[in-house]
Amino acid sequence: MQENSLMRTPYDFEPACTRRASRRTSLRAALALASVVATTSLACAGEKFTVSSADFSDGGKIGPRQVFNDAGCNGPNQSPSLTWRNAPVATRSFAITIFDRDAPGRGWWHWAVANIPARVTSLPENASATGALRKLGAIEARNDFNIDGYGGPCPPPGNPHRYVVTVYALNVDTLPLAQGRPAALFDREISGSTLGSAQITVTYGR
């Protein structure tokens, strides 16, 4: 997609760090390019890869809009908005997972997404159900509710569960996965291509 400097979409590319130099077509800018790249790379190296959400904060509670809509829960089941910054400079794509580490057995996969283009640094709320991810060329796994895409929290009554939201920076443009494959398979492929990751942990109980 060709970037229009006068208008940006929610998916506009921002480099792994913050863009520090405007684009110019002059010979002077071209001669300075190597210096700009080197300076930006050094700055990136000292900044932490982070993820945040307008819908919850690290250590906080998942909001009602993100709750599942079955199995005794009746939330809207909207995937959360996410924004990430300062990914490694060699990042070629992103992946996202949400995992319940307190579910019985080996835990519970609520969401796994891969092949998010490197130009993307945020997702709007409900990107899973609205088709926003498909428009980006991303693919979603089948979660442990046995549905493709996002499945919100719906733990059994009792102690709150912890949900780990992770954004992965990957060293490949695409992973050899297909829409609807199990989330655990997505996780294995993601792990083999990860340059770095950013996490927040949120809770939900009923």
Results as ranks from 00 to 15, higher is better:
Gly158Met: 08
Asn171Arg: 13
Lys61Ala: 04
Thr130Pro: 13
Ser22Pro: 15
Met7Gln: 13
Val172Ile: 02
Asp100Gln: 04
Ser22Glu: 14
Asn115Cys: 11
Leu82Val: 02
Thr25Asp: 13
Phe186Asn: 00
Pro10Ala: 08
Ala112Pro: 09
Asn69Arg: 10
Thr40Ala: 14
Ala103Pro: 07
Leu170Ala: 09
Ile116Ser: 11
Ser197Phe: 08
Asp173Tyr: 12
Val113Leu: 09
Ser26Thr: 15
Phe56Gly: 01
Ala129His: 14
Glu14Cys: 09
Gly152Pro: 00
Leu31Gln: 13
Phe186Gln: 00
Asp187Tyr: 08
Gly75Asp: 01
Leu133Ala: 11
Ala54Val: 12
Gly60Trp: 09
Lys48Val: 07
Phe68Gly: 01
Gly105Lys: 12
Arg134Leu: 07
Thr166Gln: 02
Leu177Val: 14
Val37Lys: 13
Ala43Ile: 12
Trp84Glu: 00
Pro64Leu: 03
Ala32Tyr: 07
Glu3Thr: 11
Phe94Thr: 01
Ser52Tyr: 00
Tyr168Trp: 06
Val120Ser: 07
Pro156Gly: 01
Ser79Leu: 03
Ser35Asn: 10
Ala16Asn: 13
Ala114Leu: 08
Cys154Gln: 07
Gly137Ala: 13
Leu177Thr: 04
Thr18Ala: 07
Ile98Lys: 04
Arg181Pro: 00
Gly60Ser: 07
Ile96Glu: 00
Leu6Lys: 10
Cys44Pro: 00
Ala45Glu: 11
Ser26Ile: 11
Arg20Lys: 15
Pro160Asp: 01
Ser122Cys: 11
Ile116Trp: 11
Gln179Val: 05
Ala95Asp: 03
Asp12Leu: 05
Phe56Leu: 02
Phe145Lys: 05
Tyr163His: 02
Val164Trp: 04
Tyr163Cys: 00
Arg8Asn: 06
Thr40Val: 12
Gly152Cys: 02
Thr9Asn: 05
Asp58Tyr: 07
Gly63Ala: 04
Ala34Met: 12
Ser5Gly: 03
Val89Thr: 06
Pro15Cys: 14
Gly131Asn: 14
Pro15Met: 12
Ser22Gly: 13
Leu82Asn: 05
Ala118Gly: 08
Thr194Met: 05
Pro15Asp: 10
Ser35Arg: 10
Thr203Asp: 01
Gly63Asp: 08
Ser41Asn: 11
Gly152His: 01
Phe49Ala: 07
Ala103Gln: 09
Ala129Cys: 11
Gln78Cys: 04
Thr39Lys: 11
Thr83Lys: 08
Thr50Arg: 12
Leu42Lys: 09
Thr9Cys: 07
Pro80Asn: 01
Ala21Gln: 14
Ala183Thr: 04
Arg162Thr: 03
Thr50Glu: 11
Asn159Arg: 14
Ala132Asp: 15
Pro117Gly: 13
Ala184Asn: 06
Ser122Phe: 08
Cys44Ile: 06
Ala95Ile: 03
Pro153Leu: 00
Gly149Lys: 02
Ala16Leu: 12
Gly72Leu: 05
Val202Asp: 02
Gly151Phe: 04
Trp84Ile: 04
Arg101Trp: 00
Thr174Lys: 05
Leu175Cys: 02
Ala184Met: 01
Tyr150Ala: 06
Arg28Ser: 15
Asn126Asp: 15
Leu6His: 12
Thr166Cys: 03
Cys154Arg: 07
Pro153Lys: 04
Leu82Phe: 05
Ala54Glu: 09
Ala90Gly: 02
Tyr168Ile: 00
Pro156Arg: 01
Leu27Ser: 13
Phe68Met: 02
Arg206Asn: 06
Pro15Thr: 09
